[in-house]
Design a protein around this nucleic acid. Structure first.
Length: 403
DNA sequence: TCTGGGGTCCTCCAGCGA
DNA sequence: TCTGTCGCTGGAGGACCC
């Protein structure tokens, strides 16, 4: 069929310094200034930085202390997640007016397959400009757009279009464009893979394209073959509007390292309640619980275990998590972070009480707490074991999601 | 410099049954 | 009956992304 031969038109839309841009709507006097969004104290990192800060070397995920050294004049703004979520919802709805084929990657970016909208809305650049104009007029926010024949190239194009720009890579321009880029531009090449490639003298996408796939495979396993395909601009993945969640987790970095196992048990219970509430809201039961423990030297270990029965009960999750943790614990350990993740989901809707499921009563009680919290946001409802226990994390108290 | 939090995907390895 | 092999599954953990 001709339909399969027609090149796809993929847009990647990425908001520019999204958190900072949203904050500037409330603080217009800071436009053009050095602005960082993040928690100013503790062990926090930069969530978003204005382009004026980026010019000084400040980057997302950089420790706040480093950022403040690079940009001591910067204004630091505490994040307001709810405002970002509201803006994000409006932006995604603008995308869905263009095409139902929208794959949201994060709060501030998405892929759009507009192949089916061309007849109705015009050429891909016209659609891209229209989206940018609409976001600008309705939300006063800047967005960058990359347009290409596939997702991978569209994503690179939007990165190169920043800030507040649009870049179109036509199919016949794809390979020459890619071959000007460093290997780090490829999806899947982070620090480790970059080091492996550099040791072999491979520094650019062109170098990868000129290396036999078998050689790349020896160095990187199956990743090698994928990188080779990407280096020639080949990426046939489809835009997937609905992607099912595969895990739900929560983690907490302590303001100071913790040496008391009782404190850590309490933290696992707190995390279990955060995760279990999200499981119940999603109508899912977890089959496996995984924990993550980061020590003072940043060494990180994870352990996981199947639950006797799939569950969305915080008590069941916490029991399993503390069991895994106790098997790891050695006197004298200093713990920097603990995390808990629920995996291996099965559907939870319509789960009935069962004598075989000993945690079902806990689930019912916890679901009742959910309903009270929904109705009375300030109720302070939480399990007795967490009452009067201060949270141990690095974040500011008002950012805590429980309690 | 000193590294958050929420995820996904992949590889390696061990255990197990055919 | 014993042993080796193969494929499957689950756990551990690394790498990566935003």
């Amino acid at each position: 069929m001709n339909e399969t031969a027609r090149p796809r038109a993929i847009l990647h839309v990425d908001m520019d310094a999204f958190f900072v841009s949203v904050e500037l709507l409330e603080r217009p006097e800071l436009i053009g200034e050095q602005v960082i969004v993040g928690h100013p104290a503790g062990r926090s990192v930069v969530l978003s930085a204005s382009y004026e800060c980026r010019a000084l070397g400040v980057r997302s995920a950089m420790p706040m202390s480093t950022a403040m050294r690079l940009a001591p004049q910067a204004t630091v703004i505490e994040p307001h997640q709810e405002q970002y979520r509201l803006a994000s919802r409006r932006i995604m709805s603008i995308f869905r007016d263009v095409t139902p084929a929208v794959q949201q990657l994060s709060v501030d970016e998405a892929f759009l397959d507009v192949t089916g909208s061309l007849r109705r809305l015009g050429s891909p650049p016209r659609i891209g400009q229209s989206i940018r104009d609409q976001i600008r007029s309705e939300l006063s926010l800047p967005a960058s757009v990359g347009i290409a024949k596939n997702m991978f190239v569209a994503k690179i194009a939007s990165t190169r279009a920043k800030p507040d720009g649009m870049l179109v890579i036509r199919p016949d321009e794809t390979v020459p464009f890619l071959h000007t880029l460093p290997v780090s531009a490829l999806w899947g090449v982070g620090q480790r893979t970059g080091e492996v490639l550099a040791r072999a003298g491979i520094h650019s996408v062109r170098d990868i394209a000129q290396t036999p796939p078998a050689t790349l495979g020896k160095m990187l396993g199956s990743t090698g073959a994928k990188l080779y395909e990407l280096a020639w601009g080949r990426d046939e993945r489809a835009v997937e509007p609905v992607r099912e969640e595969k895990s739900i987790g929560a983690e907490e970095t302590f303001a100071e390292d913790v040496r008391d196992p009782d404190v850590l048990h309490t933290e696992f219970l707190r995390l279990a309640h955060r995760v279990a509430e999200r499981l119940r809201r999603a109508g899912k039961l977890a089959g496996t619980v995984a924990i993550k423990v980061r020590y003072e030297d940043f060494r990180t270990v994870s352990r996981s275990r199947r639950l006797p029965q799939a569950s969305s009960s915080a008590v069941a999750l916490a029991e399993s998590a503390t069991g895994l943790f106790d098997a790891l614990w050695r006197d004298g350990d200093a713990i920097r972070l603990v995390g808990l993740r629920a995996e291996q989901f099965s559907g939870g809707a319509g789960v009935q009480f069962s004598f075989e499921r000993s945690d079902a009563n806990w689930e019912s009680a916890e679901a009742a707490m959910d309903r009270i919290r929904d109705r009375f946001a300030d109720s302070g409802v939480k399990p007795a074991t967490l009452l009067n226990r201060p949270a141990g994390g690095a974040r500011a108290p008002e950012e805590k999601s429980d309690g």
